[in-house]
């Protein structure tokens, strides 16, 4: 009797996660996959086949955009790590108490505003009549207005800015757990700042680095708003291309195929990253 009741409780507690997985993740993907392998041969006439995938590989614009998105996302992840690590190290190791909380909050505050508003903020700074261009003209560095928007650098700035928090948080957590005496022991045994960073700090922070990188990479790869707004109509971001297929071209079949390829790409790169850093997914995500 009692065991029946506890069993019921177990299934009730399990229900939300099962429902979530089934309804919001598995079902849409199964649907998407079925759509992606349907080829349209006439009005309302479909045939099963991999024609949509063949279209992707046959059209250089598609796979070049695909590769460009992947490389830019990896670059954005690397830049975020390079910028985020010193910030996280400073917060975790060099500050205490109130200062630490304040700094941490200051990293967080921009994220209380929607991503759209934050991106518009960058547009105000970077556009031809924007703050930076005007300031440079006033102090006489440049003679005419310059357009800083609508290029790859602007996209990169936007991507790093929107995702840096997701790098800093796991890094602060792992660096916080690094015992100060390990660093002191490193110095005591004759280590230099570089060798201690390489042999003690980074190996310890590896789970945080990897989990931060995975999150930032996924966010960049799947970002739609920032590349479109800061990179302009010709930003050539893969999510933009999927959007076009679904909404503009009304070609759900090709859109689904592209969506599936994006999923495969992100999974493949994360898997490769884990293998290269010798970390496991459960280890990194469990700790951070």
């Amino acid at each position: 009797m009692r065991s029946d009741a506890s069993k019921l409780g177990f299934y009730l507690l399990l229900a939300p996660i099962v429902l979530w997985l089934l309804v919001l993740i598995i079902l849409p993907h199964v649907g998407l996959f079925i759509v992606s392998i349907s080829e349209k041969i006439g009005p309302r006439i479909y045939e099963t086949g991999f024609g949509n995938y063949a279209t992707f590989f046959g059209e250089p614009l598609y796979w070049r955009t695909f590769a460009r998105t992947a490389i830019m996302s990896i670059l954005a992840t690397a830049l975020t790590l390079i910028l985020g690590f010193p910030i996280a190290y400073y917060i975790a190791k060099l500050t205490r108490g109130r200062t630490k909380t304040t700094l941490f909050l200051m990293c967080m505050i921009p994220f209380w505003v929607s991503e759209l508003v934050r991106t518009f903020g960058w547009m105000i700074l970077l556009r031809e009549t924007g703050v930076i261009s005007t300031t440079l003209q006033i102090i006489g560095v440049i003679s005419g207005p310059i357009e800083l928007l609508y290029n790859d650098a602007a996209i990169m700035v936007g991507l790093v800015y929107t995702s840096i928090l997701f790098m800093v948080v796991p890094l602060v957590t792992t660096l916080d757990s690094l015992d100060d005496s390990l660093i002191e022991a490193g110095y005591d045994l004759g280590g230099t700042t570089t060798s201690i960073l390489r042999e003690i700090v980074i190996p310890h922070a590896m789970p945080g680095i990897v989990s931060g990188c995975i999150v930032v990479f996924m966010l960049s790869l799947g970002n739609y708003l920032t590349p479109i707004l800061l990179g302009g109509k010709d930003s050539l971001w893969f999510t933009g291309m999927i959007y076009n297929q679904f909404i503009t071209r009304f070609n759900w079949e090709l859109g689904s195929a592209l969506g599936f390829l994006l999923l495969a790409l992100s999974s493949a790169i994360v898997f490769l990253g884990l293998k290269l850093s010798k970390q496991s997914l459960s280890n990194t995500m469990g700790r951070a």
Binding site: E199, P203, H204
Partner: peptide, 13 residues
């Protein structure tokens, strides 16, 4: 050289 209170052996090595 110093032997630390909690030894401070490097756990990653």
């Amino acid at each position: 050289s110093m032997v630390f209170q909690h030894l401070a052996l490097f756990p990653t090595m």
